[in-house]
Amino acid sequence: MGAGKSQFTEEELQDYQDLTYFTKKEVLYAHQKFKALAPEKVGHNRNAKLPMSKILQYPELRVNPFGDRICKVFSSSQDGDCTFEDFLDMMSVFSDAAPKAVKAEHAFRIFDFDGDDMLGIGDLRQVVDRLTGSQRLNEGDMQQLIQYLLEEADLDDDGSLSFAEFEHIIEKSSDFSKTFRIHL
């Protein structure tokens, strides 16, 4: 901890505490975790930019089917490479203290593969494919599943989910806020 502390001024820590859902101690702990991903690089420059492949070595992200999407969404340069501040943002959103609305906002962006601000059929397909992993649903099942999904959630019948519709589902799903978290 002592070594970590010297890397940040009190002012910076206060900033981080104000701007994330973490306390100062947790920020330092997050930095330790970040440092563990690439000790030399981060030891040299505490806010070093790590390539996505390095970030994906974080255990929870490594096995997460949406790991690369998460990196891309939180990366400030949008290519998946993350600085410590990006990493901190990520962990803050995934922490217990972050409210549902914030989590929903980011989840939407994670699921929105093509970046058109709508979850279209292609996006849903990709989400399901990544969820089931190595096994694939056959075409019939997939179509039926997507049809059910749209029936449940697509209120205005335009064949894709807007953010408002997505937030509406998340509001009603208590599973989401329980599972959409990573403990530091």
Partner: peptide
């Protein structure tokens, strides 16, 4: 689909 994955699985 949206709440299925446990993000804490590591």
């Amino acid at each position: 689909v949206f709440g299925g994955w446990d993000y804490c699985v590591n």
